[in-house]
Computed example of a mutant assay.
Amino acid sequence: MEKVNVGVIGLGRLGMVHADHLVSLISDANVLAVCALDQSQLDYAKENFGVNTYQNYKEMIDKEDIDAVVIVAPTGFHPEMTKYALDAGKHVFCEKPLGLDMQEVKEMAEHIKAHPDKVFQLGFMRRFDESYRHAKELVDNKQIGDIIYIRAYGIDPITGMESFTKFATDNDSGGIFVDMCIHDIDLIRWYTEMDPVQTWSLGNNIAAPQLKEIGEFETGVATLKFDNGMVATLIGGRHAAHGNQVEMEIMGSHGWIRIAQEPEKDFVTLFTDAGVVRPSMQSFSERFEQAFITELKDFISNVKANRQSDISVEDGVKALQIAKACKESAETGEIVNIVLD
């Protein structure tokens, strides 16, 4: 096929980013339709992207001559949407996490395996970020020796608290570990090629007491233990005053790697009587813009070549199981053994 006809499900902040990239920057993709519940989002997409619009994803899949769907709906809907699309003969790109209910996710995974002729790709976009990919090469080439410890931060700007609170009230986000730390869990598995066996996790709502009312932690900290003694620390939060803070440090026996120590927006430094100021990135979509584009290009390329993604559904299942173990530990205050199916 010359171009891959695509339908996008979900037009929230990331869904709109994906739709825009597919329309504007990915020449091998042809977006025919989008689906969302919010009429204002649909009106914007119709006017700016020139696509057909739907409020029912099944209707879009059944009526439109699409080859693939890009699912960016709330997490709880991912399993049913993926299964419906696959049964309709469509390739699927699905944002992380795979879902919220573990049984539904396991059934989803089996459904994906039952359609080996269809490409399924999970949105772990950090694997497509040049900095993280370079770090992977360094790790694989033993440039820092054996990994001893990994520290990972993922903290959203506090300016997004109101929007997140509304989202989490209307939709189950899965909690800080499932919603945010799952990216770092995936990277840790990718770098080490190992799975953790135990976690001790904690959470608090000091920066946002209102989240306690909806069962959310604002900040979550998890320690992961591995069979060989390696340790990793995950920190997820929504309270960064300066912008979007995403960083990782990999400590090896013969060297360290530090990725994105500071969320610098550009190469400009302002010197005034108020001090030295470096502008910061304000959103995850800004920090990972190129990675989002690259992963969608990879998905479209995989569909054209009928080639499965390097990111497997098993990667998504295991990352979710680990994230849920972290959540359980934070909620119970107990050390939790991690058992992966």
Rank of each mutant, 00 (worst) to 15 (best):
K63G: 05
Y54D: 12
A85Q: 04
D65Y: 04
V72L: 14
Y57P: 06
E59C: 03
D87Y: 03
M81H: 08
Y54M: 14
V72I: 11
H78D: 03
E64M: 10
H78A: 02
M81K: 11
M81G: 08
T82E: 04
V72Y: 00
A85T: 05
V69Y: 03
I61V: 15
L86W: 12
V69R: 02
V72F: 05
Y57K: 02
K58Q: 05
K83N: 13
F77L: 12
V70Q: 11
D65G: 06
K63V: 03
A68E: 02
D62L: 08
A85P: 02
I66F: 04
I71S: 12
E64C: 09
M81A: 09
N56L: 03
Y84R: 01
Y84V: 04
Y84I: 05
Y54E: 12
E59T: 03
V70A: 11
Y54A: 14
M81Q: 15
D87V: 03
P74Q: 04
D65V: 11
D67Q: 12
V70P: 01
Y57H: 07
K63W: 03
Q55P: 05
A73N: 10
I71Q: 10
M81T: 14
D65C: 06
Y57W: 10
V70M: 12
F77P: 01
V69W: 02
L86V: 14
K63T: 12
M81Y: 04
I61G: 02
V69A: 02
I61K: 06
E59K: 14
V70D: 10
V72W: 00
P79Y: 09
I66H: 03
A85G: 11
A68H: 04
A85R: 01
I71L: 13
Q55H: 04
K83R: 15
A68G: 09
A73M: 06
T75H: 06
A68W: 05
Y54V: 13
Y57F: 15
M60I: 04
T75V: 14
Y84L: 08
V69H: 00
Q55A: 07
T82D: 07
I66K: 06
P79E: 07
K63H: 10
K58N: 01
E80A: 13
H78Q: 13
I61N: 06
A73H: 04
K83D: 13
H78F: 05
D65E: 12
I71W: 05
A68Y: 05
G76V: 07
D65F: 05
K83F: 07
D65W: 04
T75Q: 07
N56R: 06
M60L: 14
D62M: 05
D65P: 07
I66V: 14
I71N: 15
M60N: 05
E64V: 11
A73V: 08
I61R: 08
V69I: 15
D87A: 08
Y84P: 10
K58Y: 00
T82F: 00
E59M: 02
F77R: 08
G76E: 09
K83H: 09
K58E: 00
K58L: 03
Y84H: 12
L86F: 12
F77G: 01
L86K: 15
K83Y: 08
D67A: 06
M81C: 06
